[in-house]
């Protein structure tokens, strides 16, 4: 076979593969865009969810051509270059088969460009999305306007929230084996097993734990933050739609981890105000017995950081009782 002939054949193979690839990729992307993309999780219940869904869809649209490209190539190879097939050309040997600078360089350049684009895109989405609903730890870097003020105020008893005021609502999520409870510092710090949120409101979730690591995952809100004992983990989302959403623990936290779920609700601002003030007064007697609102509750080595949540089963840690050791006078 002459070199010219084989060159022709090469372009012939590549052109055929490229054609199949382009047709299938465009078809897959279009199908996805119009058929599946609007239903991709986490949905559109908050602005964070909407942004994350967009991000997810961009990744999908980029993934299909990659997947299809490799599959078309492999499929083409299997069909055309099987040893059983009559008329298979001699496999190429020598330097031609050992590497092709053009192919290698373009592969590396293309994959690098795609990867760097994705990293840049993800970073922009993360920053514009105010942390994208992920837990940012006790000192958030990306936060909505007014959240710092609201969080500082939350620790004082004068914190408040009123409908239509555009204020950030601070909600504390407390994970413990095996349930989530929620405290509302702007309403006297009452604690509720229900997560009710006002619509069109920026929410600052302050997630902490009383025992082991849990993870607060409000699926439709696109919020996920690990609940660590001794630490406040803050995540943001702005509610956008009425309806209920699912809350699950997404970090293994012991034997009933699978049963650690409940659901929450986004209601109108005035309904929320009604619910919150009613619950606040109904719970007032109980709230008095809770430790004062703080970001974390289990005391650290120095005894600071919040009071105890007294649990019926566990007595507070006491080195004196446990070891009989003499403690230095306070």
């Amino acid at each position: 076979m002459s070199t010219e002939n084989s060159m022709k054949k090469e372009t012939h193979h590549l052109r055929r593969m490229a054609t199949i690839w382009i047709i299938l990729s465009v078809a897959a992307d279009l199908l996805f865009m119009f058929w599946i993309a609007p239903h991709v999780p986490p949905g559109t219940m908050t602005d964070t969810a909407r942004a994350n869904q967009f991000d997810f869809n961009v990744l999908f649209l980029m993934a299909f051509p990659v997947l299809i490209g490799v599959w078309v190539y492999m499929g083409y190879a299997i069909v055309n270059w099987s040893a059983k097939r009559a008329g298979v050309p001699e496999p190429i040997g020598g330097p031609a088969a050992r590497g092709n600078l053009k192919a290698q360089v373009s592969w590396i350049v293309v994959t690098s460009v795609v990867v760097l684009f994705l990293a840049g895109f993800g970073t922009v989405a993360l920053i514009n999305g105010k942390g994208s609903g992920g837990g940012e730890g006790p000192n958030p870097v990306w936060m909505p306007a007014g959240s710092a003020k609201a969080e500082t105020a939350a620790l004082t008893s004068s914190a408040s929230w009123t409908p239509g005021s555009n204020q950030v609502l601070v909600v504390q999520v407390i994970g413990q084996q095996w349930r989530f409870t929620y405290r509302y510092p702007q309403f006297g710090g009452f604690e509720s097993p229900q997560l009710i949120l006002p619509n069109n409101t920026e929410i600052a979730f302050n997630v902490t734990s009383l025992d082991v690591i849990h993870s607060f995952w409000a699926y439709q809100l696109s919020v996920k933050a690990d609940a660590n004992p001794q630490q406040n983990n803050v995540a943001y989302a702005k509610t956008d739609q009425l309806g209920s959403f699912m809350v699950r623990c997404s970090e293994l936290c012991g034997i009933w981890h699978g049963a650690m779920f409940n659901s929450g609700k986004v209601v109108s601002q005035s309904n929320f105000q009604n619910w919150a003030t009613t619950t606040e007064s109904a719970n007032a007697a109980n709230t008095k017995n809770l430790p004062p609102f703080a970001w974390t509750y289990v005391p650290d080595a120095n005894g600071s950081a919040g009071g105890y949540y007294i649990d019926g089963n566990v007595t507070p840690y006491s080195p004196v009782e446990t070891y009989g050791a003499k403690q230095p006078a306070a």
Partner: peptide
């Protein structure tokens, strides 16, 4: 690896 998707 994409943080916004990772949240879900």
């Amino acid at each position: 690896s994409d943080v916004p998707v990772n949240v879900t």
